[in-house]
Design a protein around this nucleic acid. Sequence first.
DNA 1: CTCTAAAGTGTAACCGATTCCATTTTGTTC
DNA 2: GAACAAAATGGAATCGGTTACACTTTAGAG
Lengths: 337, 337
Amino acid sequence: MSKPATIRDVAAAAGVSIAVVSRVLNEGTGPVAPATRQRVMKAMEELSYRPRTAARELKSGPTTTLGLLLADVTNPFFARLADAVVREARSRGVQVILMTTQEDARLEEDALDTLAARRVGGVIATPTSTNAKSWQRLIELDTNIVFVDRYVEGVSRADLVSIDNDRSAREATEHLLDLGHTRIGFISGPLSTTTGRARTDGHLASLAERGLPADPSLLRNIPFRGDQGADATGSLLSLDQPPTAIIVANTAQVAASVRRIRQSSVRVPDDLSLIVFDDNPWTELYTPSLTIMRQPTVLMASHSVDLALQRIGDDSDPRTVVIEAEFVVRSSTGAVR
Amino acid sequence: MSKPATIRDVAAAAGVSIAVVSRVLNEGTGPVAPATRQRVMKAMEELSYRPRTAARELKSGPTTTLGLLLADVTNPFFARLADAVVREARSRGVQVILMTTQEDARLEEDALDTLAARRVGGVIATPTSTNAKSWQRLIELDTNIVFVDRYVEGVSRADLVSIDNDRSAREATEHLLDLGHTRIGFISGPLSTTTGRARTDGHLASLAERGLPADPSLLRNIPFRGDQGADATGSLLSLDQPPTAIIVANTAQVAASVRRIRQSSVRVPDDLSLIVFDDNPWTELYTPSLTIMRQPTVLMASHSVDLALQRIGDDSDPRTVVIEAEFVVRSSTGAVR
DNA sequence: CTCTAAAGTGTAACCGATTCCATTTTGTTC
DNA sequence: GAACAAAATGGAATCGGTTACACTTTAGAG
């Protein structure tokens, strides 16, 4: 088990210089006689030679690695995104370094540091922090940033891939309004996040359009981490005038929220209509099957990878890709009694 | 937006040599006068200097990176595993490169190649291929391999972290036998995988112990990818003498299987008792809540990372860590009618 | 059979860190 | 204040590739 072969070993074995080996390695870098190429390839084979990525990256920046910075892979939405990003990247010969932030600004900063040290070609991220500075620093290192789902305000030159959060919240709300609901509970992420804010805004705008008053006691802006979805749901159900419908627009809290409803005596959809933002396989299997707002993860992933790689060495303006969310009506929503 | 600072820039700014800067960077490498250290740190700060990982790795192998090679991050079991591994690794200052194989041997080989080129310190993997050669090659490059969940036979010097698959299948089977079931459908992974085989063996052994004949028509060994769980389940239900209980020991096919049952007229647990291998939040929310065999992902992840890092530069014998699975009885299993 | 352009190959300088070893500075002890 | 050990620092090699440039061959044109 001697030391792994280097380019010099290969060169020696093939009786050529390292420059030639390098040219064989990187097709198109320069001419190599067919016969020579054969010999070199044979030598590489015999020595089971693999060029070291570290050495390559040292010379020219690593266009070959992407950072993927997610809040929480346990959340099915992010998991699907991760899967899709890895596949998409793979098909282009790019590797993905996965990091998670646990929605913690400090962890996020650390991760950005690491990514900066690696000089990754691009970063695809669902940002947590409001701290634009770290992001800006990464951008100044010529790293492409693509925000997915959420974004950080004040960060210039970052791309964005997202559904139209405002509109999707409206759509969900209007569906309920059409069914006659007027008291609608709305659970979403913190107002410090762009998704939390946009969805809440959309919801409220929708109510306003129909001339309905906005009742603040029906709004719940809760963190993504933890289990507050249960409490939030519980407190909505135990209001003096409980809502006749709830929209859970906080993907991470859907399970907790549903669990709380299931524990209560409230029946869906008879007593309560329910819409959740999520698209995992179990929402359909739940009884009753849940009406959902689906984010097309595969599409989002492919756009993200596109942007992250495309803009490498490119100085064009940052772009925003808005993807249409799919509203799927199933059995958890019904006319108000 | 000039070029990022290098160690030489820092050295120049602080009025010292690069050797000193390096020593400041890697505490404990050598003595540095406190005053000097201050100056260097200040210079690093002002230039917002980040040492390049590629350069570091070039000199001394990258103990600082782990490869995580999973079949499919979409599967909640793997997603949880990924999350836990990333967190565990993070807490030790180690980064994780995530790759997925889609249960495809060719993709797996590619990934192993990439990992070899990176000379990662260790690889944590749920292997797909039977192809021991690629794995062995990686090991010969001094890479630690830790198999999780499944393993590849014939690969020496690889660690293993797994539940006792044989035993967990027995436990599930015995639970059903105790409830009086004698015709039990058993859906698991391909017999080419160690988990598929061990679980099937355990199940059959359990039957044999009670003197029950093994009916091959009740066994379904199906791939992890795709949707065959639905067909397998359907075909079990439509047997002349359908089983009164089904164990889905193929984590990836649980949702498909459950969907098929839900579509049928069969009622759980009245007509059919159901046990699934999985521990995602929705199994409890399903109606009826599902009796499950839970794999403790966090524990598995922490052991895996432990092993992957611990054995770096270590020549001790490969180790196997067996973790106890948790059997949780809920409402989907009942006495046979 | 020259002449010249193109093809093929090799040399050596990088990339940005780490690290061995030699050298200089500092601090103790008689 | 000389002698010597310990602490602090710097010079230069090294890791394993890529690549600019110079050099040698080959081939086609005149």
